[in-house]
């Protein structure tokens, strides 16, 4: 009973506070833009559009990264591909050091401007933490646990499904959380290749020197990052409590 109550509060309290903060901020800045120039960017339709474009880019890239990153991570830890796994892990680590703006600019050259290019570049960028964490989570499981499972005659697929994935899950989800926070931040750069999003507010604010635009864009993307991180954190907690109950 007490756990249930605590869960409800943690599920809804923080998201509610965040949504409230975002709404209050939007209402405030739309009504007090501090001048006509900033006011032209700070309208309800504009902010809604930017927010939607931002969410859309982040969610599309995140879904693609999860769908590709986790299976790829699993495959690389299978016995036959283990050596390749170490190589890929290093490549991935190096890949993460390329600046995100450079990745966007690179794909702009080949794919043109707009939403699709932005999602593609963001996807490539956000796949890395998920792949790496899946790989790390699975390889860090102690060998004797797996040996015991195999010794009991459990099939390799069931070992993966019943033992490896549940044990590696906190690490995998941590990767997804890292990824989503990176994505929300990086998506603000997509404005430079015409994909819109909250970066429109930030970049416009910088170029016309209206701080309120920069602050609004930055605050909204920070709120979005915390929100998504929280949601994924709750999924993790739900999955963990299931595992614990079974143990």
């Amino acid at each position: 009973m007490r756990t249930l109550q605590r869960n409800w509060i943690s599920w809804f309290l923080l998201p509610l506070i965040l949504v409230g903060m975002a709404l209050a901020l939007i209402v405030y800045v739309v009504n007090n833009p501090g001048g006509a120039t900033a006011g032209r960017a700070l309208t309800y339709p504009n902010i809604t559009l930017y927010f939607r474009q931002h969410m859309m880019m982040v969610l599309a890239a995140l879904c693609l990264s999860i769908v590709v990153g986790i299976p790829a991570g699993i495959m690389l830890t299978r016995p036959r591909l283990r050596t390749l796994g170490r190589v890929v892990e290093n490549v991935v680590n190096v890949g993460q050091t390329v600046p995100s703006l450079a990745i966007l600019a690179l794909f702009f050259v080949y794919l043109g401007w707009g939403f699709n290019t932005a999602v593609f570049a963001l996807w490539l960028y956000s796949i890395l933490p998920i792949l790496r964490n899946t790989y790390a989570g699975l390889t860090s499981i102690q060998g004797n646990i797996l040996e015991a499972a195999r010794g009991m005659g459990i099939s390799p697929f069931r070992v993966l499904y019943r033992i490896e994935l549940p044990l590696a899950m906190p690490v995998i989800i941590a990767g997804i959380r890292t990824s989503v926070v990176i994505l929300v931040g990086t998506a603000t750069l997509a404005t430079f290749i015409g994909a819109g999003g909250l970066g429109d507010l930030i970049a416009t604010g910088i170029s016309v020197r209206r701080d309120i635009l920069v602050l609004t864009g930055a605050a909204l993307s920070a709120i979005l990052a915390i929100f998504l991180d929280h949601v994924i954190g709750q999924v993790e907690a739900a999955l963990l409590s299931q595992t614990e109950r079974r143990l």
């Binding site: 006509a36 474009q53 969610l59 015409g194 416009t204």
Partner: peptide, 22 residues
């Protein structure tokens, strides 16, 4: 959210500054 994208018609490409300056 995908429903809000439209790329047809008289679409105007601009930089950030020009989009809001009076």
């Amino acid at each position: 959210m995908a429903g809000c994208a439209s790329d047809d018609g008289w679409v105007f490409a601009t930089d950030h500054e020009y989009s809001v300056r009076p």
